[in-house]
Amino acid sequence: MTIQFNDETFRDDFTFRNSPEAIKRFPFPFHEDSYMYSVNLEPHVALKRPGSPFEFAFDVDEHYVSEMADRAKVLADDPLRCQSLPHMTLAGWDLVEYIMEAKARDYPDLFELHKDGDRWRWINKPLGIDDTFTFLDESTLPYGPMEYITRQTQGDFALLDQRDDNLWMDAGMVTTQADWSLDFDIGMNFFEWHAPVPKAHEMGIFVRALKFLLNLQQGAPVRRLNWTMTVNPLLDTSPENYHKWGEMKSKLTMDNIGEKQHLRVELQTLFRLPRSNAICFPIRCYLCSFNDLVSVPKWGRRLHRVIRDLPEELAEYKGFIANRPLMIEWLSQYDDGAPTSDGIFPDE
């Protein structure tokens, strides 16, 4: 196989590591030296940048196998991380079809899909899966369609039903989230689940974003990057488990911050699902330690400037206001004041 998969953990002993290649392809989210919300949606088309996380519809990287093992553990402890209201089953099949066709096309050495009418054979070599099932017949799969395919796909998934000129979070697989809960949000509409976000409402961002998404066209997916901060490479920073990870935020020092503090980036994409007319909203989490980030000089300079100048309420909302002075002090060592180039990618 072309990708060497890591054997690593996102809990307890935290053996998660990014290889030098993974650092270079990390989706650094800041295209300039400051950050504010915007409706920063762009077409999710393949970038002519081989190896970038934007190359394919669904990115598979060195963390794939270990991330799927972590998801299985989260689900074993808390089955409510995966829920689908009854009318969303067709959207689940849409997702099965979309992901299987995309992965078989983009990673032919890792995944195969063979169709004989409605009888489909799906081969997932990294996870050792070879299943034959009947498309649109739930009884032929070991789980519901959405759960089946998202146990094999990195990133959280929200399936949004479209009706009454709004979007409704009526199904999802959410085990790698930045402090939000599917069990709490399920059944909510677009404005309800965004209610906690500061500032964006006054800026009219959600009204504009919803209008854009209601007209999202089949065959024309879009993407955006979002970000926050996570101490230790935890995938599961859920409110349900805050008692386990919240206290880790108080253990940072000048000596360990480079290793423990991670920039958490979400590659969020939006696809129109053809059979159900629902919208699929994958939220793919990438983690990178401060040590690894500052190994790219442009990113070290820029991260220092962004964190230093970020509005208070955003640092508060993203949950790192207490550690911000320490972050700025540590990052300032890597900012010599030199200008930075436009865009998110490292300088060649």
Partner: peptide, 13 residues
Amino acid sequence: ISNPVNLFSLDLR
């Protein structure tokens, strides 16, 4: 022709 666009979809509930 354009990709399909649905402004008259069934409410599957």
